[in-house]
Amino acid sequence: MEPRHVASQPKPLCALVVDDEAPARRRICDLLARDDDVASVLRAENGVAAIDMIQRSRPDIVFLDVQMPGVDGFGVVEAIGPENMPLTVFVTAYDHFAIRAFEVEAIDYLLKPFSGRRYEQTMERVKERLADPRPTEGDSAGGFGPELLELVAKRATPGAIWDWIAVKSRDTTRLLMSEDIDWIEAAGVYVTVHSKGDAFLYRAGLAAVANRLDPFRFVRIHRSHIVNVRSIASLERRSHGEFEVMLKTGTRLMMSRTYRGEVEAILGQPL
């Protein structure tokens, strides 16, 4: 009888999660815990601890927060050396770190808040690379997700994605930083931009404005409303699948069922 061929089992993975914020660490650890291919999950609260764990434990993959007090994510890479780093996924809320992530050859880059599906895409990429570490034609730009590649391409074109909105009033042009915008409301051929308790009229339709805003920071919750995710304080369930969105300013807005999926995607969890 010929010996039966047994398919080799993939090596159990060891992952390291580095983030100074406990909720962020816990979310990634919870996602990794559901993966049968991940045997152990290590945790580090800062860059110094991460350097020690990488040198001692040699994890297969590290989810590395960029912004941390003291030694940040890039400081960890510099201390270990890019050539000695495990497969690295940078995790941060700020997309302008993307270019540096390319430079240190990270395999992927997760922008907070990321969806469960986006995390799964990252792990698929990680496992493919571990199974066959040879670079492939599709591995250019470090194997980053298509949405980040598109975002970086837009960043290379001045004004394609707004870091600010230029609001004109008579003879004055005022620059509103996009991070300071709480929400935007449709007003016919205009929109009303709400920022720090003030309201400004801007001549453009809501759809046109939405196309220029950072999709990782702003989400449409209604045909008439776009909100900055960082301005949301809570979401309260109402009837017929709708939610009321409470902003940190105290403003209450309705989220329609039509846009619920978009909100769940940017939050990374169902409502």
Rank of each mutant, 00 (worst) to 15 (best):
Y119Q: 08
D182T: 01
A187T: 03
L149K: 06
F114C: 01
F218H: 09
R203F: 05
V191L: 02
M177K: 08
L149E: 04
E137M: 11
E179Q: 06
R117C: 04
S140Q: 08
R220W: 10
R117I: 13
P158Y: 01
A208W: 09
L130I: 07
V167S: 04
K168N: 11
V104W: 00
W183F: 07
H225R: 14
S178H: 04
I181V: 14
F114Q: 01
L151V: 05
I165R: 05
V126P: 00
L151W: 04
R220F: 04
R134L: 13
V189I: 11
R118L: 12
L149M: 12
E179N: 10
A207S: 11
P113I: 12
I181G: 00
D180L: 00
S140N: 13
A153P: 09
S115I: 09
A207E: 14
E128Y: 04
T122F: 01
E103A: 12
S140L: 11
F102R: 09
D132V: 15
N211G: 05
E137V: 13
R212P: 12
V189R: 13
D180T: 06
P146Y: 07
F216G: 15
E105F: 05
A187G: 03
L130V: 05
I99E: 12
V219T: 11
H225A: 04
V152N: 02
V189E: 15
A156S: 15
T122R: 00
L176T: 01
T192D: 08
F200R: 06
H222Q: 10
F97P: 00
L213W: 04
I165H: 01
L149V: 12
P215A: 12
Q121I: 05
I161H: 06
R100M: 01
E150T: 13
R203G: 02
F114N: 00
A101N: 03
Y119C: 04
K196N: 10
A106W: 00
H194D: 03
A141G: 05
A156E: 15
A166I: 08
G138S: 15
K196Q: 14
T172M: 06
E150D: 15
G159R: 05
V152E: 01
L175R: 12
A204P: 01
I184F: 04
E137L: 13
E179V: 02
Y109G: 02
D171C: 10
